[in-house]
Simulated assay, not measured.
Amino acid sequence: MPLFAIAYPMIDPVALQIGPIAIRWYALAYIAGLLLGWWLAKRICAKDALWGATPRLKPLDIDDLIVWVAFGVILGGRIGYVLFYDLPHYVASPLEALEVWHGGMSFHGGFLGAAVALSLFARLKKLPLMPVFDVAAAVTPIGLFFGRIANFINGELFGRVTDVPWAMVFPNGGPDPRHPSQLYQATLEGVVLFVLVQVLVRRGALKRPGLVTGAFVAGYGLARIVGEFFREPDAQLGFLAGGLTMGMLLSLPMVAIGLAVVVIASKRPANG
Rank of each mutant, 00 (worst) to 15 (best):
V69T: 12
V255I: 01
P131W: 01
V14K: 07
Q17R: 11
A114N: 04
R43S: 09
V100Q: 06
W101S: 09
L112I: 03
V164K: 06
A265S: 15
D63G: 13
F239N: 14
I6Q: 12
N271K: 13
L120F: 05
V192T: 00
L16M: 09
W101N: 10
I31Y: 12
Q236C: 12
V197P: 08
M254R: 13
R231T: 14
A53D: 14
D48G: 03
V139W: 05
L83M: 03
L144C: 12
D86L: 06
G33D: 03
Y81T: 00
F133M: 02
R148Q: 08
I21A: 06
I44E: 08
P94K: 03
P55R: 01
D86P: 13
Q198Y: 10
R231Y: 11
R148Y: 10
L75Q: 04
P165R: 02
P171A: 07
K126W: 08
I149Q: 15
F107G: 02
L35C: 08
T140M: 14
R148E: 07
G214P: 14
R123Y: 15
L144Y: 02
L98P: 05
L206R: 14
V191D: 00
M248K: 00
A27L: 06
F146H: 01
I31S: 13
K126S: 12
L127S: 07
P253S: 03
I153C: 07
A223T: 10
A117V: 07
D86N: 04
I31V: 07
L222V: 14
L188K: 03
G227M: 04
K125P: 15
R208A: 12
T213G: 13
K207E: 13
R202T: 01
V14T: 07
H108T: 12
E228P: 10
L200S: 08
L193D: 14
R123H: 05
Y30Q: 01
L57I: 03
G103L: 05
G76A: 05
A53F: 14
A115P: 09
I225P: 05
L259H: 11
P128L: 01
P233C: 11
D61S: 09
K267F: 05
K207I: 07
L36Y: 03
I62D: 14
L144R: 09
V132K: 01
N151R: 00
L124K: 12
G210K: 00
V191T: 04
A265L: 02
A265Y: 13
T213E: 13
Q198W: 13
I225M: 04
L250W: 12
I18H: 13
Y26E: 03
I23G: 15
L211I: 13
N154V: 06
E228W: 05
H102Q: 15
I62G: 05
P177L: 00
Q185F: 09
Q236A: 14
A70G: 08
W51F: 06
I149P: 15
I257V: 13
G37E: 00
Q185Y: 03
R202M: 08
V199C: 12
A53C: 08
L200V: 10
L188P: 02
I153K: 10
A260P: 02
M254H: 05
L35K: 07
A53G: 07
A32K: 00
L34E: 07
T140G: 09
M1K: 04
I142F: 01
V67G: 11
E99R: 03
A137N: 09
L28G: 09
R78Q: 03
G72E: 06
